[in-house]
């Protein structure tokens, strides 16, 4: 595995590594070669690089056609151009025939699209896909996890969506830590006051919040939810039974994402209080850290929400 600095570079490195061993791996680009940092892939594998121009619906359909012949195409571009503009193609021509197409949606969340503004920030992608049968939804927490998520996507039969960012992610995991197929990884177990669940690129903030809380005498469990609506949520169910209170943190609208998923599991299996931190409005342009802080993702605010829930 070569070195890479963010989720997009991680994606490119993963498909380069896979293409070296598997000639079914293709990259379909709706003019996203640069955005996906995949220029090197195109140089190394010109026949496996399919450029279709700025046309996302066409890109998804092209990938469906490739997959229908047994190939494993990855379509990578901005998360919303896939899940919104090409939503119907992702549903009817990929998910319904259960074709082996893999999607990597970048600029996800406020952090992913921070300086670009609302047109390029996507916090609805998971809600959209969670309503479509057959998708496996992977939400890696940083660059290294994205690398392993992209590789895992190729191993999973059927459509997969990998949620990626744009380089503003803070690395949390070691490069060698593979993508857990349990749907959750417990990273801290300070105590049972609250189960603090993170999804995606806010994990570093959640971990910092756990330290702030510890100093205040509040001891939490921190879990990284990395698969939504997976086939086997048993490990997540184990975790949600450990505490009386749960707080979820995600860079997505509070409806339809990880918080909604956990709420469903909780209501059906172990009813208790769930507080969701996430977006309820559109965002705006700005530097990553400041934007995330203003919209409620500062470690201090996360810690405050946890502490208030215990009062």
């Amino acid at each position: 595995m070569a070195d890479f600095k963010g989720t997009r570079e991680a994606f490119a490195q993963a498909i380069i590594d896979m293409a070296a061993e598997d000639n079914r791996i293709m990259f379909v680009s709706p003019d996203s070669l640069k955005a996906m940092r995949a220029t090197k892939f195109a140089e190394l594998y010109p026949e496996e690089y399919v450029e279709v121009g700025i046309s996302e619906q066409n890109a998804v359909n092209t990938a469906a056609g490739l997959a229908a012949t047994g190939l494993i195409p990855f379509v990578g571009t901005y998360a919303g151009f896939l899940t919104m503009r090409a939503c119907e193609q992702m549903r009817t021509f990929v998910a319904y025939p259960n074709l082996n197409v893999k999607f990597v949606g970048i600029n996800s969340g406020l952090l992913g699209g921070e300086r670009e503004g609302v047109t390029h920030q996507f916090y609805e992608d998971l809600g959209i896909l969670s309503n479509i049968p057959n998708y496996t939804i992977l939400t890696p927490a940083d660059g290294p996890q994205t690398y392993h998520a992209v590789k895992a996507a190729a191993e999973i039969e059927g459509p997969v969506y990998v949620r990626a960012g744009s380089g503003r992610e803070t690395e949390v995991y070691d490069k060698d830590t593979t993508f857990s197929m349990d749907g959750i990884r417990i990273l801290k177990e300070y105590g049972n006051d609250t189960l603090l669940l993170s999804s995606g690129f806010v994990l570093d903030r959640v971990l910092t919040a756990a330290e702030i809380l510890k100093e205040q005498g509040i001891n939490v469990i921190v879990g990284d939810i990395n698969i939504l609506y997976g086939k086997d949520p048993s490990k997540i169910l184990e975790a949600i039974k450990k505490t009386d209170k749960i707080v979820t943190v995600e860079d997505h609208n509070v409806n339809g994402g990880m918080g909604a998923y956990i709420s469903k599991l909780v209501v059906e299996n172990a009813p208790k209080s769930v507080k969701r931190i996430g977006l309820t409005t559109f965002g705006e342009s700005g530097p990553a850290k400041e934007v995330a802080d203003v919209y409620g993702f500062s470690p201090e605010n996360i810690a405050k929400v946890v502490a208030e829930g215990l009062k």
Binding site: Q57, N58, A64, G65, L66, G70, T92
Partner: peptide, 28 residues
């Protein structure tokens, strides 16, 4: 519906999509 009816190479019915899906098969 593909995978339901023998001989059907691709799901269709939502208009406009066959040509771009066909390009994928042709590129393959």
């Amino acid at each position: 519906v593909m995978n339901k009816t023998k001989g059907v190479d691709m799901t269709s019915g939502s208009l406009g999509n066959g040509i771009s899906i066909g390009t994928g098969m042709a590129i393959a």
